[in-house]
Design a protein around this nucleic acid. Structure first.
Lengths: 187, 187
DNA sequence: AGAGCGGGTGTACGAACGTACACCGAGGGG
DNA sequence: CCCCTCGGTGTACGTTCGTACACCCGCTCT
């Protein structure tokens, strides 16, 4: 039995290359050939390791959501009280939407590409649901379920709008919004 | 000078067809041929009326954002006080994310497709900026600029998450989030 | 009435795509 | 030492694409 004779993490490298290509030219411009070239593997490897394009995309976005959740959990896990949790949430919003960090623009681009697929194909919607579910669970370490749900949506909206804005809003605005949403109204 | 000899609103019909095709198969699956077939015009009309694919997409999404803004302004314009404005905002969120209305899934799909383009191409980012600018202006008829900005992001996030969720959240959660965000905190 | 113009269209070309599949060669079994 | 197995790969096919451009024909002007 020859096992991993050539390249034990060939698959993983293809998946990383796929995400790179998607971030660069979009799902629309992603092809087996381009991914293969970027990963430095022959074209035949594509159909050998993955059951066609859809399978490749699903694996790639699965890996992407995994690391997105990991970041979420890491930041929220480090917070020791509500105040720190609020700060962590603000950090996440600005981390995601910071224009000066190409790596973060990448996250935003990949999110949109995934949402676009999810809006049309159930298989990808499953990925986004799992992502949302785990994000909310992490928020529930610090906030009640309803607040967690609202906060999750707020993070999404703030990050998207901030990333697209001509002049991204200040941190103070983010913090203020988080504070308002996590403070029960008087009545 | 023969003018509009055949079809005065040929262009407009192509644009409508383009949005239909995008909603159905995505920007990735949209081709001149498919749009032409859907609009009932010859393939040659595509390059005649539009300077290539990018131009076509820009025109189509320009028309899309126009009607999205119109809906926004209509709903918010009809509100006569803060309470009605809050209700209008909740209406917009649920209108956008209602799973039982195919027309609304369409809006969500098109939004994501546009954001995906905007994340990569400046020409499309201009469209989303104008869209955000006008949405915020409509919100400012009832709320201060900072709140308007926060609310705009919240609407976005709630609509996206609600549309993708397994069990979409109740209206009460939306209303509660809007109330919290539009009520200054005590301290 | 005939000519000429120009808006509109059919077609053809080169490039790129996903995928199937015949083939190769290293390594283990006899 | 030979052969067979099977993981891995190169190539070729059929399809679809964007775009250019030669052409057609209804209309207007002389």
């Amino acid at each position: 039995m020859t096992f991993g004779r050539h390249d034990p993490d060939r698959r993983a490298r293809i998946i990383r290359a796929t995400l790179d290509v998607i971030a660069e030219v979009g799902v629309a411009g992603t092809s087996h050939r381009r991914v293969a070239a970027h990963a430095g593997v022959p074209l035949g490897s594509m159909t050998y390791h993955f059951d066609g394009m859809d399978d490749l995309l699903r694996e790639a976005f699965g890996s992407f959501t995994e690391s997105a959740v990991a970041l979420f959990e890491e930041r929220l896990g480090a917070a020791r009280d509500i105040a720190e949790a609020r700060t962590a949430v603000a950090d996440l919003v600005h981390h995601l939407s910071d224009e000066n960090a190409p790596e973060h623009q990448r996250t935003l681009v990949l999110s949109h590409e995934l949402y676009t697929l999810a809006a049309r194909k159930p298989a990808f919607r499953e990925l986004t649901r799992e992502w949302m579910r785990r994000s909310r669970r992490a928020l529930e370490w610090h906030f009640d379920p309803v607040t967690a749900r609202q906060l999750d949506a707020l993070i999404e909206g703030l990050a998207i709008h901030r990333a697209l804005d001509t002049e991204p809003h200040e941190r103070a605005l983010t913090v203020e919004a988080i504070t308002r949403l996590t403070t029960p109204t008087a009545d």
